[in-house]
């Protein structure tokens, strides 16, 4: 597989000697226009890689913030076609920032795997994270995705022991997403010492960059994690910042986009200010 925007971006970050900031937003939350405005503003605010959530009615691995965000998007009529169209529009102006689609398998399966991969590739998607597809189900989407030139980014977790890691890493590409806590998104704050040890452990098994997420909320946490990881993923905290600007009907206001970009800038400063530890 030739190198993707994700590979190029992490190679570039390595040359700069710093970790990357990976930010998450849910497509269509709280409406398609606001969501697109946030997406467009993210690179300048300091996001190095962008994860876009494909909303799903039953997000089993997500905490309350992302659950609510999915429901707002679905209520606003978001669907897969609109999500892919939003990325196509983003790509017209930004050719460098990697885009990773993240979500659950059913909406992809129903859209049709081959059609999804073709349309995602055309829209300018670079990688996929599908929470409910472990390596045991690689035939479903992972292998076809790799064949079509998309990265398939796998989650590794505290329960993924050394014996299992090779199986998890086997068909992973782009980067490894280390879930720093056992649990759902946005709930527990990771213990940076334990994260450090885990990143070191994963790096013994792979040359891929390792990004760490689940529960990162502040610039300080981002800075601490950026000292050992190649990327820091922030999701629920950005959704919370957006949610705080919505009116009682869940509608966006004048401050919605700015609330997200301000926090992204803040987190980016944290990530960029990290002193890279002895590697």
């Amino acid at each position: 597989m030739s190198s993707t925007r994700i590979d190029n971006r992490f190679a570039d970050l390595k040359r700069q000697g710093r970790a990357g900031l990976v930010t998450f937003l849910t497509a269509g939350d709280p409406d398609i226009d606001t969501s697109f405005a946030i997406l467009k503003a993210l690179p300048d605010a300091g996001a190095d890689v962008i994860e876009i959530g494909m909303p799903f009615t039953d997000p089993m691995a997500d905490g309350p913030a992302i659950q609510a965000s999915s429901q707002r998007a679905l209520k606003g009529g978001q669907d897969m076609k609109k999500t892919l169209a939003m990325i196509r529009n983003f790509r017209a102006a930004d050719h460098a920032t990697p885009i990773v689609l993240m979500g659950y398998y059913n909406p992809i399966y129903i859209y049709g795997v081959d059609k999804f991969l073709a349309d995602a590739k055309t829209a300018g998607v670079d990688g996929l994270i599908v929470v409910d597809l472990p390596p045991e189900e690689d035939d479903e989407l992972c292998l076809p995705a790799l064949k079509s030139g998309l990265n398939f980014i796998r989650l590794a977790t505290p329960t993924t022991d050394d014996k299992r890691l090779p199986a998890v890493l086997a068909n992973t590409s782009g980067f490894v997403y280390y879930v720093s806590v056992t649990g759902i998104t946005g709930m527990t704050t990771p213990d940076t010492r334990a994260v450090n040890a885990s990143v070191t452990r994963i790096k013994r098994h792979t040359k891929l960059p390792v990004a760490v997420g689940f529960g990162v909320k502040t610039a300080e946490q981002a800075r601490a994690i950026a000292q050992c990881a190649d990327g820091v993923v922030v999701g629920s905290a950005l959704i919370d910042a957006l949610q705080a600007t919505l009116d009682t009907n869940g509608k966006a206001g004048a401050s919605s986009v700015g609330a997200v970009t301000r926090l992204v800038a803040n987190l980016a400063a944290g990530v960029r200010g990290a002193r890279r530890g002895a590697r």
Binding site: M60, D132, P134, E136, L155, T160, R164, V168, V179
Partner: peptide, 18 residues
Amino acid sequence: RGHFGIYGGRFVAETLMP
């Protein structure tokens, strides 16, 4: 692998797989 024809399987998050 837990399949009944095309049905069944193990579609869970990595944390639960072990």
